[in-house]
Simulated scan of single mutants.
Amino acid sequence: MKADQAELVASYPDGSIGITIKYGKSYEDTWAVFRGSVRQVRELVRDYFGFECKDVTSLSLSDLVVNATNLAHGKGNIASILDARIIPDEAPAQTPADDPWAAASAAQPEPASDNASAWILGEIEKQTTIDDLKKLWAANQSMFADPAVMAAYKARGRTVKGG
């Protein structure tokens, strides 16, 4: 492994070590620098690169750094050669309530119905006042030609009135 491509290891007077993982070969490419005890550096590298603990517990720090370096080089190449962006592979746990795009993409379409009056019947059930029922009737008079719709309208009117 070449020092300019993979890892640069330094020892410090306080007994800590430093590891630098580069994302590419040039000086301008991104670097990740980790300093601490061997255990601390191991945990920092694992956390930084998102390695699962079970996948790296049997690796030496040197092996872990090689894996991290390979991952960094791969990401660096994707970013520089393809001008790509890294996106998370998990959807956010919750979408903001005030985000109309999130709400629209989370919405499920209502199942299709063979009943041409299904929509107006649903709207009749949603009304909570006599005035709202009257407005619905005024805006959709042609749909009230269906006897089932008119019966539902009258029944909802009685329910809303309380009688």
Rank of each mutant, 00 (worst) to 15 (best):
A93P: 00
A116C: 02
D131Q: 07
E110R: 12
G157M: 12
G162A: 12
T57G: 03
P92W: 00
T129E: 05
Q40M: 09
D131V: 03
D146I: 01
D55H: 09
L136W: 08
Q127P: 03
N115A: 11
Y23K: 05
E90R: 13
A106R: 12
P147N: 15
A155N: 14
A97Y: 15
A68W: 02
F51I: 03
A72T: 01
L61T: 11
R42M: 04
A104E: 10
T69F: 06
I124N: 02
N70E: 08
R156G: 00
G157C: 11
I17Q: 05
P13K: 15
T20C: 02
A10C: 07
A84L: 00
A107Y: 06
H73C: 05
I120T: 05
D29V: 09
K54W: 08
A97Q: 15
A79S: 14
E52V: 01
D47T: 13
Q127D: 08
L136C: 03
A145W: 15
I130F: 09
Y48F: 13
V41I: 00
A155I: 11
L133Y: 00
V33M: 07
A151D: 13
A84E: 04
G122F: 06
A104Q: 10
M1D: 09
D146C: 00
W101H: 12
V160N: 09
E43G: 03
N67V: 06
A72Q: 01
D132G: 09
L71M: 09
T95F: 01
V33H: 12
N70R: 13
Q127S: 07
R46Y: 04
S58F: 00
D55G: 04
S105T: 14
D98W: 05
G76C: 03
M150P: 06
A145N: 14
A32G: 02
N70S: 06
P88I: 08
